[in-house]
Simulated assay, not measured.
Amino acid sequence: MRVTQKWLRSIPMREDEREEETTAELLMAVARRLRRGFAAALEDYAVTPSQARALRTVVEEPGIRLSVLAERLGIAPRSATEVVDALEARGLVAREPDPADRRAMRVTATGEGLRLQRLVHESRHRELDGFADGLTVRDRAELDRILRLLLTGR
């Protein structure tokens, strides 16, 4: 068996073995837990997290060029092509030539893609609401405020 950081992190620790967790470690743990929950929710729709992100971006930016999609997702153009291939095979997106540049392709969501994006969006919100169930409205507002501060640096 190959020992990786991912494998090591997956080993549950006893409470007495845990070191004091820093804010950064807590934030990363929360992010990992949310990602796992979101990924599990996506399984119901047979869509991967990368496909869901790509579909959301295509819905938000109809007619987006493949190169721009790759940039928005922070992935290589070849990877964007593979993700779009998978979405297109399921009838969730369609490619069309860019009228301004015949060599480029634009991607748009189909009716089924729009429907699935709406379902995935609702599912992610349900997952987040379940995750944050233990927070009061005031706690959640304070958490949102603090997270925005961290993101903007102000």
Rank of each mutant, 00 (worst) to 15 (best):
P99H: 02
E17P: 05
R106N: 03
G37H: 07
T48V: 09
E19K: 09
V83Y: 06
A104L: 13
E25H: 07
Y45C: 02
L73V: 02
W7N: 03
V58S: 00
L55K: 09
L69V: 05
R33T: 14
D44W: 15
R56E: 11
R36P: 05
G111I: 09
E43T: 11
L149R: 08
E112L: 13
A80D: 01
E43R: 13
R154T: 07
E60Y: 04
R72Y: 01
V93G: 01
P12C: 08
R32E: 15
A80R: 00
F38Y: 06
G111E: 12
R32Q: 13
R33W: 08
K6P: 03
G63C: 01
L135V: 08
V83R: 03
E60I: 04
E20M: 14
T22V: 06
L143V: 15
R53N: 10
E122P: 05
E122F: 07
I11T: 05
E19D: 15
L147R: 00
L143I: 15
V58M: 04
F38N: 10
R148I: 12
A31R: 05
A94C: 12
V47Y: 05
L42F: 13
A46V: 10
A104M: 10
R78L: 13
E20G: 14
S67W: 01
A109C: 04
G63W: 03
A141T: 06
R145C: 02
V68G: 00
R18W: 15
L116I: 04
A76T: 05
R18V: 15
R118K: 13
R148W: 03
L149H: 00
L150Q: 10
R115S: 15
R124F: 09
V83D: 06
A70L: 04
T4L: 05
R18I: 14
A86L: 04
E15R: 14
H121L: 09
L149G: 02
R103E: 10
R148Y: 02
E71G: 07
E19V: 08
A109P: 02
G111Y: 07
R95F: 00
I11M: 01
L150D: 09
A70M: 06
A76V: 11
S67K: 09
P77T: 06
E71Q: 08
K6E: 10
R115P: 06
D44G: 05
A41R: 12
R53E: 07
R9K: 12
A29N: 09
T136P: 08
E19G: 11
Q117T: 05
P99K: 01
V120W: 01
E17F: 02
R90W: 11
L87K: 06
F131T: 14
M28L: 15
E17I: 04
L92Q: 06
E43L: 10
D98Q: 07
R56G: 13
G134V: 12
L150Y: 09
P77K: 03
V107D: 00
D16G: 01
L42H: 01
E127G: 02
G134T: 13
R106I: 04
V58E: 01
A89H: 14
L34P: 08
S10R: 12
D144P: 04
D144R: 05
D133K: 13
R118Q: 08
Q5Y: 13
L147T: 14
P49V: 11
A109N: 02
A94D: 12
R138L: 15
A132P: 00
E71P: 04
R103L: 12
D144G: 10
G91P: 06
A94K: 12
P12A: 09
G134N: 12
A40W: 08
R118W: 02
E122N: 14
